[in-house]
């Protein structure tokens, strides 16, 4: 379990997060949304001790992120995937990139190759093993970043707008991968500004001005028009469609949130 207990954070004088209390359970798929500058990235950096709160406490499986001796373990448990594919690729080849993290957590050298190859296989990048980063697309680089985290055997994987710089195909493939990882038992924390992506979560959290302003199942959050308007959120397309349909007298059950689901419902319900 990942726990935020009354956490506040500021960059200099500027308060960025105010009194955040939050629990993330193992096996969750949590999506965090909110306008620009609302503190989402700050929240993600607090989760593995890249930055420290000035008030409150963050516990990762009972390890306090504020104790320096916990940091190595915490960073192994909580993997972070960033937005920019280029700026998180440190090594000169795909294989070396995965090895880098293994070296950091002092894995035995004999075991590294098979661990790295397994991780690359999982994200479908094994055949690119010896390729240099400048020959990869953004989506491929993000896959390698995910493999590099997977190799370290984390429990929680945090994606901070990791699809934002990708083309639609890249976005879709990373989302699918995220879903697979969740099915395999990883806890996923996904920061995004794409509302369609947010629908995939088991829980959505809306951040605005450094406070949690709404939280709940995606359908509930997006059906709450007050939350939507107050936080400049965009209603996901399937929900927009449902709204229009109900204006026309067709009421689609609440739990259906994909376009396919709605279409199926309409043509089978009569």
């Amino acid at each position: 379990m990942l726990t935020f207990d009354n956490v506040s954070f500021a960059y200099g004088q500027q308060a960025v997060l105010k009194n955040i209390s939050l629990q993330i359970m193992e096996g969750e798929f949590l999506t965090i949304i909110g306008p620009n500058g609302s503190g989402k990235s700050t929240l993600s950096k607090l989760m593995n001790g890249l930055i420290q709160p000035y008030l409150g406490q963050i516990l990762v499986d009972r390890l306090d992120t504020q104790s320096p001796q916990n940091l190595k373990e915490i960073r192994q448990i909580v993997g972070l995937i960033f937005q920019n594919p280029e700026d998180q690729f440190i090594s000169t080849t795909v294989f070396d990139e995965v090895i880098f993290g293994l070296e950091n957590i002092a894995v035995e050298p004999d075991k590294m190759q098979s661990i790295a190859e397994d991780a690359l296989k999982k994200v479908g990048m094994l055949s690119y093993k010896d390729v240099e980063p400048h020959k990869l697309s953004g989506g491929q680089k993000q896959r390698v970043a995910i493999a590099a985290i997977l190799a370290m055997k984390p429990k929680y994987i945090v994606f901070d707008e990791s699809t934002a710089m990708l083309d639609p195909n890249g976005q879709k493939s990373i989302m699918t991968l995220m879903q697979h990882l969740h099915d395999e038992g990883f806890t996923i924390i996904h920061i995004t500004h794409l509302m369609e992506e947010a629908l995939k979560a088991t829980r959505v959290l809306v951040l605005n001005g450094g406070v949690i302003v709404a939280e709940g199942a995606p359908v509930d959050v997006f059906h709450n028009s007050r939350v939507i308007e107050n936080n400049e959120l965009d209603v996901p397309l399937p929900l927009k469609l449902k709204g229009r349909l109900s204006e026309a007298g067709i009421v689609v059950p609440k739990q259906l949130v994909t376009l396919e689901g709605i279409v199926d419902y309409i043509w089978t319900s009569n």
Partner: peptide
């Protein structure tokens, strides 16, 4: 950040 996040220490 990326180096720190991956436990380089």
């Amino acid at each position: 950040n990326a180096i720190d996040a991956r436990a380089y220490g």
